[in-house]
Amino acid sequence: MANMLVYIAAAIAGVAFILALYRFMRGPQAVDRVVAFDVLTIISLTGIVLIAVQEARAIYLDVALVYALLSFLGVIVVAKYLEGGEK
């Protein structure tokens, strides 16, 4: 039962991923793409957590933590770049 729920969650997250990917490709502003990218990374992060649960391997959680850290830094850097790009 719990196994099935993990698969259902993964499937729903997959649909969410596709929807966010659609916004990522459509834009139209650079900011829209960055938001979509942020959402995409977080959905992937939950994907990693789901895999960690399903495989019962805690090491994947370290991957998730580093992933969260890098995505945060990435978004901040890109946002700073976009701000400066206007001048």
Partner: peptide, 8 residues
């Protein structure tokens, strides 16, 4: 996952 879907 449902909330993520709502986000998408």
């Amino acid at each position: 996952a449902v909330f993520l879907l709502l986000g998408g």
